[in-house]
Design a protein around this nucleic acid. Structure first.
Lengths: 337, 337
DNA sequence: GCTCCCATTGGAAGCGGTTCCAGTACGCAG
DNA sequence: CTGCGTACTGGAACCGCTTCCAATGGGAGC
């Protein structure tokens, strides 16, 4: 039984003394290291139990030069970018993988200047054993900092204009192509796209996928209408598309949120989905399932993204040399197309 | 200019030597402490700059016995509980407030046994300066651990059967009452509720609010149909309610997700909303705005909840004595009621 | 010109572990 | 019986920073 609660955290010295051994031996027992006799090992274990001893992680970190934590940094000018369920799912995946490696998860939102400078601090001071970096914008100063940091860094999604050594990404081009091909295969010949921000790699890749499919089918690509991945921007973009091309019969939206926005605009404009206009989204968020009609979309393994980023980071921390990873996407057919 | 990148992190000793002062003085300069002459202060600053010195947080933590981090612990048996946008918003708020206090945010999902034991470890080893605890279930072992931990602990929402010293909660009873009163004021006389899990305080409080309003209006309360706050459980509960009370004309759902599920069931059952049945939700998530029809709901300041939890924790860490907080909710009227 | 006081200063003792290394004891081959 | 390799053991040196405290020196008051 862990006995009385000592007011002060007990230390390894106290354990050693109670067990009648030196601190070295006690330390070896705690770390499951060899060169400890069975008798002393048991004595130490008894003492640990009796004192309710828990090692001090900070002291251990100082001695081993390992913090036992990994950071997930999300960049973006808007703090609420982070409230996006997308990131929440990434976190779930990363958290699970880190738990397996017994690492803690630190979350850093690099939205404000303050936030960014804290991240820089973190990178330079080695306050974590490694970093996962997400949602970098073009020319994001974070990218340079990360390159300079002598710390394992894994990118989630490839940042524009950078060719990181280690990253996990989702097959955005393939997914967008599949989505557009699906529309075409259903007989839609006038397919437009609501693309995402073209200063992000996701935005570009999904637009490229759309182009690939349209061109491969010998159709005329429409010039894209851009949104910022949100519902309202999708609704606005849809309105603009309808104004430009009243006769379109298919739309590929580069995110579910924009897809749902498009559905709203179409409904308000009196177009039936999918009869008049078929719509396909991207992401497969919960919202795609409950929209009206339910949204055909491209499923991407978001939790898997987080998990694989964390796994890759753990591998790097352990001195291994993993290779970049591109996770597959797949079309989920629902009523909207 | 920060000169050449020393392969090895430079230390305070090196700074001191380069500046021609003792380590003590260098330390004082870094911590903005008094008792340093202007000349030496500047010399140290120059050396810091020249070496690109960044203090080692671990060493500082060991010396000061402050980790510089606060943990947000979310309990629950399902890891994906965390993917709930609700938590994402809490995180945004907490993160912002912690940033102001220059504390890092550690995220702990206590879903698995493994996760729970890691949280226990964290609590007992003082690996953080304080903890925010959320979504505790009845008899959650975490509650006891938290009580025993000699560490500031702030609860988010009050756990069932516990009366924590410090917590931030949302006015669930008031919100639910307002929602139900709204239904009644619109002439609905047969108002049922889809309540949340009654082994959670939120579930109970929102049910109590419903009861309050119904009884105050002299109406007959219907026995509640329980869900687990998810869309599908809401849909199922709605079906059950319709079977039991085919003539109901109003429903208060204890979460937006369940409310949206109810909308779906009602639509499938051929009931018009709000003409035949009016529906009010709770949470004011994004989904409430884009559902069809848009959901009248009770707005709660989720980000504010996170922010206030963090602020309260910071106050505790700084030795102050904050008081529990209950944040107001407000009804947001949309088309569904 | 001589105390006394106070702002500075640097030496040294922690903070709580890990780990290198020299020393001890014991078993076994020669 | 002596020599040597092996499995333990504990002393001591870090890890990098904070902070207490004694010592130093210069300026003010008398």
């Amino acid at each position: 039984m862990a006995v009385g609660v000592p007011r002060r955290q007990s230390t390894l010295d106290e354990v050693a003394e109670l067990a009648g051994v030196s601190r070295s031996v006690a330390s070896r027992v705690l770390n499951n290291a060899p060169h400890v006799s069975r008798a002393k090992r048991e004595a130490v274990e008894r003492a640990v139990h009796q004192l309710g001893y828990v090692p001090n992680p900070t002291a251990r970190a100082l001695a081993t030069r390992q913090t036992g934590a990994a950071a997930l940094v999300v960049s973006g000018e808007d703090p609420s970018i982070f409230a996006d369920p997308f990131f929440a799912q990434v976190i779930v995946g990363a958290s699970a993988a880190l738990e397996d490696a017994d690492l803690h998860l630190m979350l850093c939102l690099a939205a404000s200047d303050r936030g960014r400078s804290r991240v820089e601090q973190l990178l330079r001071s080695k306050a974590a054993d490694g970093v996962m970096l997400m949602a970098l914008r073009e020319d994001d100063p974070l990218a340079r900092m990360a390159e300079e940091a002598e710390m394992p860094v894994v990118f989630g999604g490839r940042p524009v204009g950078l060719d990181p050594r280690w990253y996990v990404d989702v097959d955005n081009v393939g997914g967008a192509r599949a989505a557009t091909e699906h529309l075409i295969s259903r007989g839609r010949g006038r397919v437009a796209t609501i693309c995402g921000r073209l200063d992000t790699e996701v935005g570009r890749a999904r637009y490229r996928g759309y182009l690939d499919a349209v061109l491969a089918a010998g159709l005329e690509p429409y010039s894209p209408e851009a949104g910022d991945f949100t519902e309202s921007s999708g609704a606005a973009a849809m309105a603009a598309l309808l104004a430009r091309h009243p006769d379109l019969d298919g739309v590929f939206a580069a995110s579910d949120n924009m897809g749902v926005g498009a559905l709203r605009t179409l409904r308000e404009a009196g177009r039936r989905v999918p009869t008049d206009v078929a719509v396909v989204g991207f992401d497969d968020l919960a919202v795609a399932r409950i929209s009206d009609p339910p949204l055909t979309t491209v499923h991407q393994p978001i939790e898997g993204l987080g998990r694989e980023m964390a796994r890759m980071l753990v591998a790097l921390i352990n001195g291994q040399a993993p290779t970049p990873l591109i996770l597959p996407t797949r079309l989920v057919t629902r009523a909207s197309a």
